[in-house]
Each structure stands twice: as structure tokens, then as C-alpha cells.
Amino acid sequence: MSATSPPSKGLFRRKTPGDVVFMLVLGTVCVGILFAVLYPVYFVLIASVSNPSLISTGEVWLWPKGVNFFGYREIFNDDRIWTGYGNTLLYSTVGTALNLVVTLPAAYALSRPEFRPRRILMLFFVFTLFFNGGLIPTYLLYRDLGLLDNWLVFVLPSAVNVYNLIIARAFFEHSLPKELFEAAMIDGVSYLQYFAKIALPLSKAIVSVIGLYYLVQHWNDFFTGMVFVRDNALQPLQIVLRDILLSNQAFAGGTGASGGSGTSYDQQYADQIKYGVIVVSSLPVLVLYPFLQRYFEKGVLIGSVKG
């Protein structure tokens, strides 16, 4: 990792000793940071296919040893994970669809400067970022609405994320050419037509960004299942993960294929199963990550446009 000053290369052509020291320190620190960020993730990956006794004796460091797929076989034979996976897929897709249908039009309406109520409406939305009713009134409301132990609880209450609304609004306000709107208005196009036929097709970037944010939010949602749902058949992946990873409802006494074959054996492989579960549950996000990361980043940048 060498460092060149960002804007001009000319002035620093002759490197002073200070520059050399600076570059060395910077390079070392950067490599250190990269290692600290990536190694834990990499270790989970290799540990999930390594012989667990070699892990516990400290022989697995850089590449997998005693490669076997026992952990993954157990995981694939476990119903809970697939139920959780199916539920999470359902909640994520239906939830994200609803999110987009509700958030995007609202963001567009709030981006129209001539729409004067938008001032008070923005206040109405932003206020909820800083003040809320708290857990218990929310819980009792859901109970009264019949949302407890109902799969809609994963979809309806989270229909609008105010941060995403603000990002989308900033995009509509600053990234669409004003002339386009004026021309369309002269042609007698209505707001709804303009939004559906002109604004949306030009806003694929923001639709992808907001959609991805919502998707990740649903995928990682743990709180909803924990507080509002008791029924195991409805639980999303994150709750199943919690049960396996943290509550140690490992496969020993569960539906695992090796149940009853001796606890030491199960004990030994419990860790490998855990590493495998981490990989399986994070796989969709991690595999898509390199392709999607520019969208994630774009969201932050759109959101930070100054008005």
C-alpha cells in the first residue's frame, strides 16, 4: 500500500524521508485493518468445513484442514432452517414490495416544491425518528390489531422506513431534471402519470438502493420475531439462528440426524454446525455483496446531497 497524494503527482515527485515514513505507517495500518475486518469472516468460512478437533487444537489458521461437510449435511437435513429460510424469503419479498409501493410515491409527492403541505408532512415523518411510543404501547397496539402471531407483523408495521423515505425524496428532488417536469406539465400530464411513466423509469438507481436497504432490513430482522411471535412455524431465519447459535438448542436433542448417537460426538461437531449455519444464513448477502455494493454506497451518497 503506497500512498500518493490524491490530487497532484507533480509536486511530490521527490519524496522526503517524512513521506516514506508516512507511507510505511499508512500501508501497515491499512493492511492491519483489512486483516482485522476480513480474517474473522474468512475463518468462519474455513472452520465450517474443517475437522472441529483440529480447530480446537489450534491447527486451522490459513486454510481448512481435515475437510469434511458433516456440518453442512446436518444443516441441510434440519427442517427448522428451511422453514426459517422460507419464511424469511416470503417476508422479505412481500415486505420489500410493499415498502417500495408505499415509500416511493410518498417520497415523490414530498419532493414537489409546489406541494406546500410537504413541510408539515416531513415534520410528521421525521419526528418519529426521535420520539416514539416505546415497546409496550406498540405491543398492545399489535395485540389489539391481531398482529401477534400473525405473519403480517413482519410486513405491515415496517412499511415505511423514514430514513429511506428521506433518501428517495432527496433523489427525486435533486436528480431529475426540472425541465422535464415543466415540459410534461405543459403537455397536460398529471402527477400520477408523470411519476409512473417518466420519473420512475429514470429512477432505477434509487429503486434499487431503497429496495436493497429494505431487503437487508427484512433479512436481518430479529426483533419482530422475538417480541411479537410465539409460533415456531412463523419464525424467520434469524430466530432459528438464535436458537442454534446462541441458545445452544444444538442439533443434539433436536431434529438432527445424529440425535442420540452420543453426546461427545455431538458436542465435538456443534461448533462446526454453528460455523456452517453462519455461512448458510449470510450467504445470500455475502454472495451478492460484490455486485450490489455500489448500490449500497450510492444510497449514502444520494442521501447526503445538500439541498
Partner: peptide
Amino acid sequence: TYLPHFISIVVIVG
């Protein structure tokens, strides 16, 4: 450096 942002809390604690 921003990859871990998308890992779920359950997995982080795991």
C-alpha cells in the same frame, strides 16, 4: 471495510 455492516446481529453475536 463496510462488508460487515450487512451481517445480522444474531450472526455477529454468534
